[in-house]
Write a protein that binds this DNA or RNA. Structure first.
Length: 357
DNA sequence: GTTGGATGACTACGAGTCCTCCAACA
């Protein structure tokens, strides 16, 4: 994100609107905004951690998107607003804090450090897991999310449930062989060869770079064209014809071919329904569809408690959830600032809420 | 109208929870 020229901060952290210069740096899934009050040398940091649906948007202040939970207004006329848009409210932000300590170097902006961090720690227990699960470990793969892991593994035809260490050690051997073979090549030829035959770690850098480079607002679902472009860019994730399985953390991994030796047992691979219609051979008893997983209405359990009855029907997944357990009370000073959850009841609120903005 | 899954990460240590939206289904 480029440096913003001159912005006014609006929000309850600042009682009176003051002029700030704002610069932003990103690392993995975090973004730090540094606020420098005009006429003062002091700065203030805000670190944002994005959830599944969080993003920043710069738009006219009179046309704020839905779920714009934090707004920085420009001083121009008419003003624009830099908004933290987070539909699901999974994102969080901290005031005056640094990067999260347990995240490794960023796969995009700190590639060499990222690579070294992985290669020097191959004996870590994180690499005992399947490669698809290791790729979501932000201690080593800071910035890789669910769709990126699918795209990266798909391009290299690596079975997602192959052991991570097996994959990375094989890659290490290939790297040494390549170095010996390429020792006489010029730097440009080495780089060209690397681009033509990237290894797993190189793709962890290159694939996110493709997303960044493709279009400025590629991931903004409010712009249907951009979102369509993003979906068109995807080669594996959510693509009809690809298989999917739940990993051991409950996240869906999309892949093609064999899942690998560490695939969860007793789970059947699913394929996108569009492909099922187009491919009659795929209609085997092993395919699980949403309909087949659904509990028949006649088999529905009655409400388990009077409280559930009193709450009335809930939509979607919330209906089947267990009641939240009571969390120990924490003072606001002890907890990181999180986006306000205005519809939560106090009993369900697990952390201190951020000020309304 | 209902259900479950979706670009994360937390707590507690496997599975539930936070929240909103929407495609797919009966």
């Amino acid at each position: 994100m480029p440096e913003c020229p001159e912005l006014h901060l609006a929000g309850r952290y600042i009682n009176e609107a003051e002029a700030y210069r704002i610069s932003a740096t990103a690392r993995g899934k975090e973004l730090r905004l540094t606020l420098a009050p005009l006429g003062s040398g002091a700065t203030q940091d805000l670190v944002f951690r994005f959830g599944m649906s969080g993003s920043f948007r710069l738009c006219p202040a009179a046309e704020l998107p839905r779920h714009a939970h934090l707004r920085f207004l420009t001083s121009e006329s008419p003003p624009r607003a830099l908004c933290f848009v987070d539909v699901r409210r999974f994102g969080s932000w901290r005031l005056g804090d640094a990067w999260q300590l347990d995240r490794g170097p960023c796969v995009v902006s700190e590639y060499q450090a990222f690579r070294e961090n992985v290669m020097k720690n191959l004996d870590d227990k994180a690499f005992d897991k399947p490669i698809c699960e290791a790729l979501l470990n932000q201690k080593f793969f800071n910035g890789i999310g669910n769709y990126l892991r699918a795209e990266i593994l798909y391009r290299l035809k690596i079975p997602p449930f192959e052991k991570a260490r097996t994959v990375l050690e094989a890659m290490k051997d290939q790297e040494q062989t390549r170095r010996k073979k390429n020792s006489s090549l010029t730097l440009s030829k080495k780089l060209k060869q690397m681009r033509n035959n990237p290894d797993l770690l190189e793709l962890c850098h290159a694939v996110p770079m493709e997303v960044i480079a493709t279009e400025k607002n590629l991931l903004d679902p409010d712009h249907s064209d951009n979102y369509a472009a993003f979906k068109n860019w995807l080669q594996c994730y959510l693509v009809p014809g690809m298989s999917s399985l739940r990993d051991h953390n409950g996240r869906t991994i999309w892949f093609q071919g064999e899942p690998g030796p560490m695939a969860p047992k007793g789970q059947r691979s699913r394929k996108k329904r569009a492909q099922l219609k187009a491919d009659p051979e795929a209609l085997t008893p092993e395919v699980t569809t949403r309909a087949s997983k659904r509990r028949p209405k006649t088999a529905e359990k009655p409400p388990e408690s009077a409280e559930e009855v009193a709450d009335g029907p809930r939509k979607g997944r919330a209906r089947g959830r267990k009641k939240a357990t009571a969390a120990p009370a924490l003072s606001q000073a002890e907890v990181p600032v999180k986006a306000k959850r205005s519809r939560q009841t106090p009993a369900r609120r697990r952390r201190g809420a951020a000020p309304a903005v």
